[in-house]
Design a protein around this nucleic acid. Sequence first.
RNA 1: GCCGGAGUGGCGGAAUGGCAGACGCGCACGACUCAAAAUCGUGUCUCGUAAGGGGUGUGGGUUCGACUCCCACCUCCGGCACCA
Length: 1101
Amino acid sequence: MKEANYDPKKIEKKWQKYWESKKLFQAVNPDARSGRVKAQKPKYYTLVEFPYPSGDGLHVGHVRSYTALDVVARKRRMEGYNVLYPMGWDAFGLPTENYAVKTGIQPAIVTKKNSDNFRRQIKLLGTSFDWSREINTTDPNYYKWTQWIFLQFFKKGLAYKAKAKINWCPSCKIGLANEEVLASENKDAPGKCERCGTQVEEREKEQWMLGITKYADRLDKDLDIVDYPERVKTSQRNWIGRKEGWEIEFKINPTPEPLPEGEGEEMQEPSPLGRAGWGYETADPKIWRALQDRALEMRKNPTEAEDLMWQVARNNSLGCHFRRQQIIGKFIVDFICLEKKLVVEVDGDIHDYQKEADRERTDFLKVNGYKVVRFKNDEVVQNKGSVKNKIAEVLKALSFGEGLGGVLKIFTTRPETIYGATFIARAGKQDKFTGEYAINPATQEKIPIWEAEYIMEGVGSGAIMGVPAHDERDFEFAKKHNIPLQETVIPIRIDKNHPPKEGYKKVTRQAIHAIVKNPKTGKILTLEWTKFPWRTLVIGGVEEGEDVVTAATREIREETGYKNLKFIETLGGQVKAEFFAAHKNENRVSYTTALVFELIDEEREEVSQEEKGKYKITWGTIDDVNPCAEIDVWKERLKNGVGVYTGDGELINSGQFTGRDSFEAKEAIVKLLEAKQKTTYKLRDWVFSRQRYWGEPIPLVFCPSCAKASEGEGWQAVPEKDLPVILPKVKDFKPTENGDSPLAKAEKWLKVKCPKCKAWARRETDVMPNWAGSSWYYIAYLLSENLKSQAPISKQFSNNKVQKNLKYWLGVDWYNGGMEHTTLHLLYSRFWHKFLYDQKLVPGKEPYRKRTSHGFILAPDGQKMSKSRGNVINPDDLVNRFGADALRLYEMFIGPFEQMVSWNEDGLVGTRRFLEKVWRIGLKVAQGETLKMPQGLTLASILNECVKKVGEDIEAMKFNTCVSELMITLKAFEAPTQGRDPDQSVGTIPLKTFETFLKILSPFAPHLAEELWQKLGHKTSITLEPWPKVQVVKKASSEVKIMIQINGKVRDEIVLPPSLTQAEVSNLVIKQPLTAKWLKEKEIKKTIFIPNRLINFVIDN
RNA sequence: GCCGGAGUGGCGGAAUGGCAGACGCGCACGACUCAAAAUCGUGUCUCGUAAGGGGUGUGGGUUCGACUCCCACCUCCGGCACCA
């Protein structure tokens, strides 16, 4: 009989039809009453990201992901699970819309064409998708649900309209998605439009927002309960950017408050708050008392205008607290808002007599940072309303006060550094001193308030306390603007070589380390001690009343005699060093400063006899110095420059906290400051509007009459019975001149009656972003019957059958997708799920139990595949030439699954050859033909090993080694001369053995496995077979190979009965000729023995 | 800058701290063939005739023994980027 060649074209079509007709891969929904399926099969939900059906067709990267989870799904079915492995189309999106703009073809038509093509291509691969549940996000039956879910967000106040920045292309007159903006080479310049290359502008436009930030905390915390790769969790956590910190209030440039009676005297003393620095002089108590009397009198007898003005300003009616007839310095002002530092004056006749005094007063107020607004009497009397508006406008423009009560809130994660805060910075377009000051609540010092470019509006509270000594960016800013620096945290180092010893006294002192450079040689001065094996810098203590430079200069002279020195710099701040000082027999705690000097010349004076004997003066580099506690810090600073110490350490210059550990003192400091603990997030609310066509219409109506009737009631939800809001057909897909969605031109569609008051209203023309439909699609697969139903969605959700179904299937057991979706899609759908969970619509806090990611496949040239580059690999062509099984196998074999790889077709030959071999052997087995092969027992154990390895490696997604293992096992089937068995026999391959092999091959190469399975005489599908069990090896094999190492190097090996003791093995081994040769005349110093595996002799060389 | 990930033959890549380079591609030689293809077999890190030596980005360390663990550095890739 002539052997048929392996012809994938023939068999693959055949089995694909067979599977489909037998509905082998259709998942079974549970019974509505019991919530279970027949035979009580456990469920398993495998999911791959559904594709965007682009015109380019299927990508080999899709194949990689689909095949991988197909292997998992097929294995799970064989393990007895009721498996759901669905597929659908995420079909809304820009490329289709852009194509429509260009060609005028309706996106719906293009989508149909592309998804048909994708389906055809995927079906060629023999993936075990349940096609009966196919979904398409652009299907009105589908987006009806998407719109309904949006309305639930809207009703809960989580969808709101707000101004947001968009990328605007002034040439195309269109808002661009971030992905459509090409990054410009200069990172500060705006990006360019993907299509026309014009520089993109930032524009503000009202957009619908989804309140994802309300879920930020749970999105972060619940990452703990899901099985995602650590890097995915990390990048989600980074994206959410949860940060625990504290909000600290800084009082702003304190204004004098009216002093209570009798306390005026104390004002002459500088108060503990350091008032002298406040920038104004309080009036003499006597003057103050006089002024107060007058003020009270004026309050009692206001002019008409003053009275009216008070009505305007009192009771917080302008949004902040006004006082009248307030004493500021030696003046009385008419009205003042202290928080905003706004003075309102009403000029009557009296004022005309005292212009000089007014000018003086104006100057005084100006100097002290008050804004003064003046009104004429008449103005106030005649038009109270306009005066009120004017003040309101001025107030709005003033920086502080709004809701702040005269304080500025800053957010920090390092409150313990507050003693080093020497300025305040808040968000601004450019660096600018505001002219205002704040009081550091820890030191009570007056510090300037700046606007700074590097502070961002939306981060924290939009303001920081600047600690130049301990923050890089604050340091840069302070340096640039000459703001002083105050060091408050110093590193603590304990000498590893000479750690403090117990039982010795502890001496604390200030010390210096002098680094003296000789500019001629570039070397530095070192001391070699005569009594101790040390080489040190010039070191010494700082004496009472001495500054560090003097101390260092003195020490250099005393110890080395060099007297002409130039001081260069101190090498950063102090370091606290703890060590045992052997030369003094005491423990030292040393606050050390390093100072850098240069020799002016080499002139020296006589060194005292005592010092002379102590050291030898040598020259070297910093690396020659023996390690001391501080040395690493010096080296680091010499190398990278004196920067900023951002670590923890000991607090200095920190009032009552000086000397404490910075980390440990944090709590006490925030308590003292009454700082509020606050958590902030990087995550922003989700801009949910797109001024586009090809997306889900946002199902809202704007009703002008409702808006008029009640503020904030303009937007009305489309009633559930009117869903879906169908995307109307349009002819022109371009946005309008002012950047509105093309839907704004669909006039008939636009006009609609308000669902609430039935007046004429107008539909929202924005559509939803791409991410909407994919945020709940894993639920849609479970509702494929419901999607077709016209029953109200809320009813459907509460239906028992639906709830049982959702409860049975959710969450997704294994979800595979690309790394590029870890921060957007994955986060968004987790957010939607949590929201739906809160509405008690779906079970479980999380949508996906386990997430894995596949590596991207690049073109052979290492570039991204794209039509324009002409480097796209077409799977159709590969299936045609090599067969789907060979392609599947190769995609699994190409490299580590999670790693990015470049496509290389050469390897496909290998997997095809492998399949041909399987085919040939399979036919021979089927015909009972005799094959040369090793003894049955060996073969069985090799196969057993294969079952084990493949099973484990599938779970670990190590598909490449699965394939390798299958190849190795196949070799065993056909190896006539290989192997360690010298007396191998010729015989037949046991049928069962080969069948087992086919079973574990079947998830990878399902068509071939089915065909051979049939040829072996089976009438049912191999996919219905149980997954082979790993045989537990009961009897240990009769011999083991023991490796013989000499000094850790393999020199020999020996085959011995198992379970011998070290002594037994050792005795046998040293008689081996090769081993004996190595051990000849050597003394065995040590023997390492691992039973049944290894023996290692340590000898002298 | 920060956060991830990775550096191993001509190439894709294997390797619980214990034989580095499994498996595949390519290449060379051989068998079969009139011949070629296909197939099968043998070989294929490097220096050395050999014994043996060297070798997993670089430099240190831990260990009887390091691709594997620790420290420092270099390079490449991906993500984020004034994040307080």
